[in-house]
Design a protein around this nucleic acid. Structure first.
Lengths: 208, 208
DNA sequence: TGGTTAATCAAATGTACATTTGATTATACG
DNA sequence: CGTATAATCAAATGTACATTTGATTAACCA
């Protein structure tokens, strides 16, 4: 049974990256199959040998993007570092995912809305996104429980952090004033400052 | 010269509001003229008596949305309140604009990208957006200069604040746990906490 | 009352896709 | 070598719009 074909074959991986880039650049409805195909030197029709439809392509991009960032973030959250370090690491992963990994994460962030019409798919997407958000929330809650962070409305705090991090993909330009790592560090510092507990009263050492 | 026609006439204002809502809901490319028309009980063709094209409609929405929020924010920034109060007021305006004023602001925020192809229009949009961002920046810079806020990277801080505020339109649901005003207050509190200067050393009163 | 015009509609028109179809090429394996 | 198959392409096909067109309606004003 003859099988493997050409060397000039395009990897499905490359198609996903191309699709992510184009979805991010033009939005789901604005992106054409020809745009995506051109990105990997194919014609529009050829894409259908790899994915059954444009919608499936978006689903695959979202699925893979969310899985990737969730995996990386989970590794940090499950580790034993102090909460502040975890938050810094998460910001780093999040920002770098947006600006480096072929914009897959960026497509995830902004094109999820295009799925609002397809209930089955949408639920899957929402579930994955909530999973990711829950990881962020856990870091903050653990930090509060440990006394490293001041108590606050964790729900809003995490949404704000998400927003700040996601927004990076809208304004980041390669070769700008700061690198992705520096941006992540600065954002993490901002949110960590907001989490700083008030100076301890009645601690081990009397204040005066 | 006979003029004014029917009572059943649709105001251009109503069309802009409808367009903003639909653009926000479906994205620029995903929105159809029929969708927008239906929102004000018209047929697609009738919209062309009020706006020359779909693109003009988007421009008008963006222009008006940005002008509105900029006007409101400018009034606060030009006022004499303490910087912290200004920041709280701005957050309030920003969030309420997103979730109340017919989603015009929300459309502004997320559909600006659809204009990336139309250079003339795009520049106008970018200029207006930068104007708004400059107002936010001024509040933070003034606060730092006055010693109310700790010094930090104002560029990143403002982008983070923008992101956190803009993100609200993606997750806010009417009848949720918090009102828009409460959300704005919580976000403002978070960012103000991040701006808090370290306890003064060598102040008027000696520390012990 | 009637002419002028704004506002609307229903029905074209044209185009830009997503998707299909029917070759064509090139590989791997026997 | 030869044949089955993966991967591709160029050229249909069909549809979903944006926009146009040609009435129709109803107000205003003289």
């Amino acid at each position: 049974m003859p099988r493997k074909p050409a060397e000039q074959t395009v990897q499905p991986d490359a198609i996903l990256k191309a699709a992510a880039t184009v979805f991010y650049r033009r939005g789901y409805h604005g992106a054409t199959m020809a745009d995506i195909a051109a990105e990997v030197n194919l014609t529009a029709g050829s894409l259908y040998h790899h994915f059954p439809s444009k919608e499936d392509l978006l689903c695959a991009v979202l699925d893979r993007g969310l899985a990737q960032i969730t995996r990386d973030v989970r590794a940090v959250v499950d580790g034993g570092a102090p909460s502040a370090d975890k938050l810094r690491a998460i910001a780093h992963i999040h920002v770098l995912s947006e600006i480096e990994h072929s914009n897959i994460a960026a497509a995830v962030i902004f094109e999820g809305r295009a799925l609002l019409d397809v209930p089955g798919v949408r639920d899957q997407y929402v579930r994955q996104r909530d999973t990711l958000e829950a990881l962020y929330r856990r870091v903050v809650e653990d930090g509060i429980a440990a006394g490293d962070f001041r108590p606050l409305d964790v729900g809003i705090f995490v949404k704000a952090l998400f927003g700040a991090l996601n927004w990076v993909s809208l304004w980041y330009r390669e070769g700008g004033r700061l690198t992705g790592a520096q941006i992540a560090a600065e954002i993490a510092a901002t949110f960590l400052a907001a989490l700083q507990p008030p100076p301890a009263e009645g601690g081990d050492f009397p204040p005066c």
